[in-house]
Each structure stands twice: as C-alpha cells, then as structure tokens.
Amino acid sequence: MFALVGDVTGSSRALRQLRVLAEAGVPVSVLQTAGPRAPRALPDGATLTVLGVRPGGGPLAFWRAHRAVREAALARPAGLYLASDLYTLPALVAASRRHGARLVYDSRELYTALDSTHGRPYVGAVWGAVERRSIGRADAVLTVGDAIADRLRDRYRIARPTVLYNAPYVAEAGSADRDALRRDLDLPDDGRTIVLYQGLFRDGRGLRALTEAAAAVEGIRLVLIGEGALEAEIRTWSAALGDRLVVHPFVPPDRLAALTPGADLGACLIEPLTESLRLSLPNKLFEYLAAGVPVLASPLPEIRAVVDRGVGVLAAPSDPGAVADALRKALDPDRRARWAAAAPAALAPYTWNEGRRTFRALLDRLLPAT
C-alpha cells in the first residue's frame, strides 16, 4: 500500500517509485487525498482510492487526513506499507502493526522545518513530535538528499536513511524536442532567451527577484509553469510585464519533462527561509539538467555542489540585482552551451538510473517474494 496526502500523479517522485513497484510485479493500492489530475500516469497494477478529505494545511488538516488514511489502511491488509510523506506515516504505522507488515517512510522534506514553520516554531514542534513518535517504527526510511539524511539520523538516532535523489531516469542520449515549449505555449521565435521556472508558486522560490530581474534585462522571456499561493500576484506581474512574462498552469510530470528541453535556462532560486529549504535538492534542478538546460540557482550548500560542476550560474535568490547580473551572463550562448555540455556528467551521480536500483534492492529485502 502506498499513501500520500495530495495526488501521486502530480508527483514525479511518487510515480517513479510506483513504476518500480509495478516492474517488480507488486500490485499496489494507492491512497491519496486529492483527485488524480493525470490518471493515465498510474502504472498498471496500481489501484487508486481517493479519500474524502477537506483540503487545507497545518496540524488540523493533518488530523483530518490522518483519520481518513488510518481508517482506509487498517481495512486493507498489505505486505508492505509505504508512507510517501510524514502526514500518512502514523496511520501506516498502525496498519503495518495490525497486519504484521513491513513499513517504509519517505521523508520527502525536512518536515520540522517546512515553509509553514517560517516564523511559527510551534508548527515545527508539532511535526517534530509526530515524526519522533513514528519514525522508529519504520523498517526503512528514505529521503531526498544527504544533508537531510544526516539530520534525521542525528535527530532521531536511527540508521542513516537511504537517499533517493529527486532526479529523473536518464536514457541514452536522444533527440529532445526543443520546440515543444514554444509550440505548446505559442511563444514567438524572436531570439529572446527563454528562462523557465517550473514548480510551486510560493514564497521561498525567488520568484519576486526573478521577475524583477527579467523586467530589467533586455532579451529575456520568463516562463513560469506551476501553481500555488502566489498565483494571483504572479498574474499581476504578468499584466505589468507584457510578453516578457508568460504564466502557464500546472503540467503533469510526464508532459512537463517533454516541455523543459525548450528552455535556454532553468531557474532554481530557493531562498533559505527554513532549514528544509536551505538543505533542499529540488526536482526542478535535476529536471533542467536532464533536459540539457543549464541553470540559474541559489548558492545553498546542496544546490551549489551540483552547480559548481560547471552547469550554470549562482545568484542570491532574494536580490533582484544579483539575479539580473546572472541573467546577463546567461545571455551569452557560448557560455550556455558550455554549461549544457557539462550537464550529463554533473547529473550522473544523482539520476534515477541508480536510484531505481537502490529502491528495487530495498523492495527485495523487505518483500523477498518480489
């Protein structure tokens, strides 16, 4: 059983794991709290149950989701329960104990320091209490990066979690459709450098500085693909910037991967508002590189270790002037070509090519029959 608060079809990480389970011949029951936006993305062998949970955030929303997931999971015996976030972990602890099953916890964030904890320490304390109570019951813990793995090990005195980076599978070099982004978004081929941001529209992603910088630099067209709390504000910016800023709604992961190669530069300007953000290794960073797109990124430790392999330029994410200077450097096509050429080697240690082998080995250990 696989459980997530949200929609697995909107999560590239969840889909990668579900596809490995399908390849292993493991039938999977998926519990989620939102309707699927791309139901065809689910692999064969996965059955989906959408729980009736009122959307929201914070501890109160967690308790509503917990009750719904717990009731559904207790009624569904399984050999393995995979909690794809902290919010489903306590419910799956209960189900795994009732049915004598194995349990995996995927810590996709540093939950004690989420965006929602910024300026609200009591929220982090709640998530810390929930995690401390449940994490030791898991037979295996996964996470997204080495720094967070170390934090979880030290904080809870558990075995170091297995790291599965949020990086895609990289096939043999092929011919990516470099025109799909322009074609799908009806962008004119006018010689402007396309700077792409794909992800959540929310604080901590450098969107204000990026938009101000794009307005100040000639020859830039900024494309934002996603959704989130800043969407209305971003629409206001779009009206002011005209064709310098193009805003497009959420695109499911598989389709987004086909659009990304059409960008000239990918923006990953994470602001260190919380420890989780400071230590993050976002999907988008690796998705750009897998598409052969160099990056404009924050000089945060985990991100910098990737970008310093020669794949882009760093800029202070909340400083429009610094971001503008970085954009001006990226206008040089020869420089971008060098960054793009370095992307495969920089990405290689992080790809799902290795991650899927690690995940499959974990499945083989916990479910020998697979």
Score class of each variant (00 low, 15 high):
Val130Cys: 01
Asn283Tyr: 08
Ala340Phe: 01
Thr49His: 14
Tyr197Phe: 15
Ala3Trp: 01
Leu185Gly: 12
Glu227Leu: 06
Glu302Thr: 15
Val126Gly: 02
Thr88Arg: 08
Tyr169Asp: 13
Leu210Lys: 11
Ala291Glu: 15
Leu164Lys: 08
Pro27His: 09
Arg37Gly: 13
Ala213Cys: 08
Ser29Phe: 06
Asp44Met: 02
Thr49Cys: 04
Ala95Leu: 09
Leu259Thr: 13
Glu287His: 07
Ser280Lys: 11
Phe359Cys: 05
Glu354Met: 00
Thr9Ser: 13
Tyr156Pro: 09
Leu331Met: 06
Ser116Trp: 08
Pro349Ile: 02
Thr49Val: 10
Arg338Pro: 03
Glu212Cys: 04
Arg19Gly: 05
Ala342Thr: 09
Trp237Tyr: 06
Asp254Tyr: 05
Ser134Met: 02
Glu302Leu: 08
Arg255Thr: 10
Ala113Met: 00
Leu114Met: 15
Ile303Cys: 02
Asp7Leu: 03
Pro77His: 05
Ser134Phe: 01
Trp339Leu: 05
Val307Asp: 10
Ala149Asp: 10
Ala258Arg: 15
Ala95Ser: 11
Gly52Glu: 15
Arg192Phe: 04
Gly310Ala: 06
Pro121Glu: 05
Leu51Thr: 06
Asp190Leu: 06
Ala263Lys: 11
Pro299Met: 06
Leu103Arg: 14
Pro272Ser: 12
Tyr105Ile: 02
Thr370Asn: 12
Arg192Glu: 12
Leu89Val: 04
Arg278Ala: 15
Gly128Ile: 01
Thr274Leu: 00
Leu142Asn: 03
Ala147Thr: 09
Pro55Gly: 09
Pro272Leu: 11
Arg151Tyr: 15
Ser298Lys: 08
Gly119Leu: 02
Ala361Asn: 10
Pro39Ala: 03
Val8Phe: 00
Pro299Ser: 08
Glu233Leu: 12
Arg309Cys: 11
Pro77Cys: 04
Thr49Trp: 07
Ala75Trp: 00
Ala101Gly: 13
Asp115Glu: 12
Val26Asp: 01
Leu21Cys: 15
Pro333Arg: 13
Leu187Asp: 08
Arg151Ala: 14
Trp237Gly: 00
Pro27Arg: 13
Glu109Phe: 00
Arg336Trp: 04
Ala346Leu: 03
Ala337Ile: 03
Val307Trp: 09
Arg202Met: 09
Glu71Val: 15
Arg64Ser: 10
Asp115Ile: 00
Glu233Ser: 14
Leu51Phe: 04
Asp146Ile: 01
Arg357Asn: 06
Gly219Met: 10
Asp139Gln: 05
Ala167Val: 00
Ala257Arg: 15
